[in-house]
């Protein structure tokens, strides 16, 4: 068992356990902390896939900005007593869990069958990736982002502006945090 194999299983275990903890913890603060843990381990998974720049962006944007936003909003609320964290109804709950299980089974089956039909064993794919070269990732990333996908990039800028204006408008509206009286 080499180091990167061990690393994958370790990171997968941490990701799944902390992801489960996000859903199962009754206190939302613990959920937020487990979500930060999940984000960081997903960033480490990006590192094992040689997406170094994305790993950095993941930590800065998710584990930094988004999680701070979540925790700050949680601190605004007084959620000491949370009654009934989960939905009611045993039968509908079983139905929901069954639908989730069916979905995950479908995805896993599609992945395994699809890779078998494609007929590429993992070793060939790995060697192809090593030969094709995802080296110099950040440079290729910026070229693809600013030369090929410049329209999408600009559209994202417009979207962020719209979201910022919309959030301010929402908080200034009736019932918001900064409502005009």
């Amino acid at each position: 068992m080499t180091a990167d194999v061990f690393l994958f299983w370790f990171l997968a275990l941490i990701t799944v356990i902390s992801g489960l903890a996000v859903v199962l913890m009754a206190n939302p603060i613990y959920s937020a902390l487990c979500l930060a843990m999940t984000m960081i381990s997903v960033a480490a998974i990006f590192v094992t896939l040689q997406a170094y720049f994305l790993a950095g962006v993941q930590i800065i944007v998710y584990a930094g900005a988004v999680m701070v936003l979540f925790v700050m909003v949680l601190m605004l609320f007084d959620l000491k007593h949370e009654l009934q964290a989960f939905t009611r109804g045993r039968a509908t709950g079983a139905l929901k869990i069954a639908s989730v299980g069916i979905l995950s089974g479908l995805i896993v089956g599609a992945v395994t069958i699809g890779l078998t039909i494609a007929g590429r064993s993992s070793d060939e794919v790995i060697s192809a990736a090593a030969a094709g070269g995802v080296v110099d990732t950040t440079r290729g990333l910026s070229e693809a982002l600013f030369l090929k996908n410049i329209f999408g990039f600009e559209a994202l800028g417009v979207l962020l502006l719209v979201i910022a204006v919309g959030t301010v408008a929402l908080s200034r509206s009736k019932g918001g945090t900064h409502a005009r009286d």
């Binding site: 489960l20 999940t38 959620l79 009934q84 989730v100 979905l103 890779l115 064993s121 993992s122």
Partner: peptide
């Protein structure tokens, strides 16, 4: 031997956990 399917299955498991959270929890922030 870690291949693409390992990462894809991990992604599917994480997605299913998130979907279960959306279906089962009642707190908007969660």
């Amino acid at each position: 031997t870690i291949g693409a399917e390992h990462y894809l299955v991990l992604s599917a498991i994480l997605f299913s956990i998130g979907m279960a959270g959306v279906l089962l929890r009642r707190n908007l922030i969660v």
